[in-house]
Design a protein around this nucleic acid. Sequence first.
DNA 1: GGTACCCGCCATACACCGTATGGCTGAGGA
DNA 2: TCCTCAGCCATACGGTGTATGGCGGGTACC
Lengths: 174, 174
Amino acid sequence: MILRSALRIIDADGVQSLSMRKLAADLGVNPMSIYHHVANKAALLDGVTRLVTDGARHIEVSGGTWQEQLRQLAYEFRTLSLAHSNLIRHAFSVDDVIQRDGPMWRTLCAVLRGAGLPEPEVERTGAVLAVLVGGLLHTEVNGTMRRLIGEGEADDTGFSLAVDLLIDGVAARV
Amino acid sequence: MILRSALRIIDADGVQSLSMRKLAADLGVNPMSIYHHVANKAALLDGVTRLVTDGARHIEVSGGTWQEQLRQLAYEFRTLSLAHSNLIRHAFSVDDVIQRDGPMWRTLCAVLRGAGLPEPEVERTGAVLAVLVGGLLHTEVNGTMRRLIGEGEADDTGFSLAVDLLIDGVAARV
DNA sequence: GGTACCCGCCATACACCGTATGGCTGAGGA
DNA sequence: TCCTCAGCCATACGGTGTATGGCGGGTACC
């Protein structure tokens, strides 16, 4: 209940305008009451982040070449981020969006293995890819991407180019 | 004066602990006096960011293959970011670190042109690379990189891997 | 020389924030 | 029946950014 309400406020007005008092008002409750369910505001934001990222717990990439699978995975990550861009923008700057051994991570490693990447490289390359795509999405939700490329192009032009480039990079080492 | 003092506080204690009152105390001045030189706190932070990024106005990549030049450029960006990681961490989450037509940008495009990338691709690829490296550095200053890869490795292991991957990606399209 | 002006500084005040502290209420177990 | 404790709340503290208005002194003009 609390987390959902907080998420609603964040989606509407951004993280910086979420206050315990506003949240309490939205819940029809005294501000201090919230502290019986949440340690502090940081923990609240952490909880909201998990609420969202857990929403995409089951990720499946179906068929196709490993290139298509990687692309599909990246776009999965993207729609997840854009759905709650205000929240994600904050979460990226705190960290914690990319969880080692999360569903995204495991799927990614599986795809890389399927691509024929030598085993000792899989984890490290997976981490690097996750970080690169994460950073990429961060610049997309904070507007940098649109500022540098957008200008009349399709929304995902920059993202698409970047993913292509990353896939070529992976291809060079299988 | 003001900007330098603010930068000192940020470097020492982080952006979130920079307040107008603390800054004023550091300057031996009344809090409200600052507002005669800076519109508001956001503008102050913006000014500090420019102070730092302008510090690296002249960027030269000397000799070597375009791969070596790209790598050198990326590491230039990295040392700039790590020198004031607290500030950069905030600046990335607001945007504005990566300036189109900044010195970094122009050097990057020049290197790409030298690599033989077809002209219409240069700008877009440059933007994508800038964004990717920017996001990469963001995850490095906020600790995600260390969490995913670091663990006893050299500090720049993840960064180095990522840059290699990006260079291979560029190589695939020249 | 007088005077109007404006720049830099400051004192006060407002609204808001996160949250420490402690008290109330009502339900459930001993 | 009594104790405990989870949940809620009222109050208060120290912090925040900044709007407002006043003050002093240097500068430009009559």
